Simulated scan of single mutants.
Amino acid sequence: MRRAGWVAGAAAAVLLAAAAVTSAVAGDAGDDGAARPPAAGSADAGFARDMAVHHQQAVEMSYLVRDRTRDEEVRRLAYDIAQTQANQRGMLLGWLDLWELPKVSSDPPMTWMGMRADTSRGDGALMPGMATDAEMDRLAALRGKAAEVFYLQLMTDHHRGGVHMAEGCAAQCAVAAEKRLAQGMVDGQRAEIALMAELLAERGARPRR
């Protein structure tokens, strides 16, 4: 219960902080003092697009495991992750709407970080930490402890990739509200990585790398 409360509290803190700055995310002020939204190729837009996709897979994984185990601690963690990341995803897509920018770019994922994702693989793993289509299928086929362990391993990888991306935005994004949201993601997901390592150890397993 203590650990579940810790995760829920961290998730709530991230959401409250994000909600508090939503109204201030229109963009930077130009020389005339008017709000100027980020450019389509900016780090702000690239992070919003890519992290929305990244978060969507985390939500899908979390609902998969929630329906495949009766372990209350894993189910609570999965629910917290799903709710937190679904809300953050909505904010990111909402900002793109506010900025009148497309939600899909012709540039490959991660271009805003100076990286080039290999989109030719066709395995679903478009960005750091993302599970492949085969891994998602395997998770869907597992039940009980096996599903718990594989989910915790996949989500640990997913969070590590998410932290890497969020650190990139915290360093490169220009919109202050988005930078704060990104740092909140870093802090929250690092806490969840530590918790997932404990849950894996309790099940005689450990992160994949």
Rank of each mutant, 00 (worst) to 15 (best):
T111K: 08
C173N: 05
A174Q: 10
R116M: 12
G124W: 03
P207F: 09
T84G: 05
A11S: 15
A8C: 09
P38N: 03
G144I: 01
H55P: 08
W112G: 04
V14P: 01
A141E: 13
A52L: 05
A43E: 07
D31A: 15
S106N: 06
A39V: 02
I81G: 04
E192W: 05
T69A: 02
A194G: 08
A43H: 10
R121I: 03
G129E: 13
M165R: 01
H55S: 01
A194E: 10
M91T: 13
L64V: 15
L154E: 06
W99Y: 07
A182H: 02
E148Y: 08
A170P: 01
A48R: 03
A191I: 15
R143Q: 12
G27P: 07
A197F: 00
A34P: 00
R190T: 14
A176G: 06
S23F: 04
G114K: 08
A13D: 14
G114I: 07
A125Y: 13
P38R: 01
S105E: 04
R143T: 08
G162P: 12
R190V: 11
A205H: 11
R36F: 01
A205M: 09
D97N: 06
T22P: 00
L152P: 03
E198V: 05
T69Q: 01
L139M: 11
V7T: 08
A147C: 01
D28W: 01
A29C: 06
Q85N: 03
A140Q: 13
A39R: 12
V149I: 15
G27Q: 03
A194W: 04
G9V: 07
A10N: 14
M127G: 04
R36Q: 11
A29T: 12
G90F: 09
L96G: 04
T22D: 03
Q56R: 10
M115P: 01
A197S: 10
G114T: 04
A48L: 10
K179G: 09
R203Y: 13
A48I: 07
D157R: 14
D123Q: 03
Q153P: 07
K103H: 14
R75I: 00
E72A: 14
V14M: 13
E202G: 15
Q88R: 02
A43S: 12
I81S: 04
G144H: 01
S42K: 02
A141H: 05
Y151E: 02
A86E: 11
